[in-house]
Simulated assay, not measured.
Amino acid sequence: MSIGYRELASVLRSRIEDGTYPRDATGTLPKHQELADEFTVNVKTIRQAVRLLEAEGLVTVVRRRGTVIRRQPAMKRLGAERYAKSKWKFGLVAFAADREASGRAWAPGDQSNRVRLVEADPEVAAALGLPVGAPVYERARLVREEGVPTHALTSFYRPDHVEGTPLVNPAPGPAGHGGGFAVLTIQGFEPDAITESLHARMPTPDEARELQLPVGEPVVVLRRMTTTLDGQVVEFARGVHAATRFEWSYNFKIPE
């Protein structure tokens, strides 16, 4: 009796979990035809099984590489610790803090960068205290790990805060030594407090394409507002994170 795709997915899942197919930087499943020959099924059955594993976040089909096994555990996405002044004042940007906390390598080129002057939409305008349609700088980044996108983050700034600074330089990578928070500090707008909100939803077609998401994987949407000691908003950011590629970690004292 021929094995079905669900049973086949269970076998492949077990092999991933027991290390038969290693979860390292180069780990992949055997080629579809090799699996079809081993289990005496057609390639269509292999594809169906792989799609199940994709939906679980265990593998990703990457063009010209094959079926890549995702590294586990997911990368830690730190809470307050990722924004510690002791990090960015000495050159460690937030996404790199996450990588180091997870024991992962990183390079400035892991982050792309697109900067442009746009009109503030209602949400951005309300956050920055500007009229709708007022000019703001939009700084959009796509962050990758080993070539695979992990999240997209877009920050918005008032032009009078960042004009002529590294924050409006479109070069790939962080905005200079220490990233955007270091730049704002030099400008006299040192970040002092951050409010973040999170919610999960299914991705839009554009988000799924940009983050190379398998069918069925949700995203975690982040909104971040950064203020100075006197309460002035100096950055509003929106992020979209692949849900299975992060473990969100928070460490805090319990309020009285």
Rank of each mutant, 00 (worst) to 15 (best):
V115G: 07
V183Y: 07
S197N: 10
R139W: 02
L211N: 07
A36Q: 03
S10L: 10
V132G: 04
F95R: 09
H177I: 03
L222C: 01
A84L: 08
R65T: 09
A96L: 00
V61Q: 09
E217A: 06
S112W: 07
W248T: 00
V132Q: 15
P170C: 07
V115F: 07
W106F: 14
H177P: 01
H151C: 06
A171Y: 01
F252T: 01
F246W: 11
R63G: 10
G147S: 10
L29N: 11
V220S: 03
D37R: 13
R13Q: 12
L12M: 11
R15M: 03
K87M: 01
R70F: 02
I3A: 04
N169C: 04
V50F: 04
S2L: 04
V148H: 00
R99A: 14
I3F: 01
G109F: 01
I16E: 00
H199I: 01
E119S: 13
G216C: 06
V68A: 06
S197T: 15
T226A: 10
E34V: 12
M1C: 08
V234W: 04
D110W: 11
L52T: 10
P22F: 02
V162L: 11
P170V: 10
E7I: 00
E210V: 15
A200H: 05
P135C: 10
P172G: 04
R209Q: 15
D24Y: 05
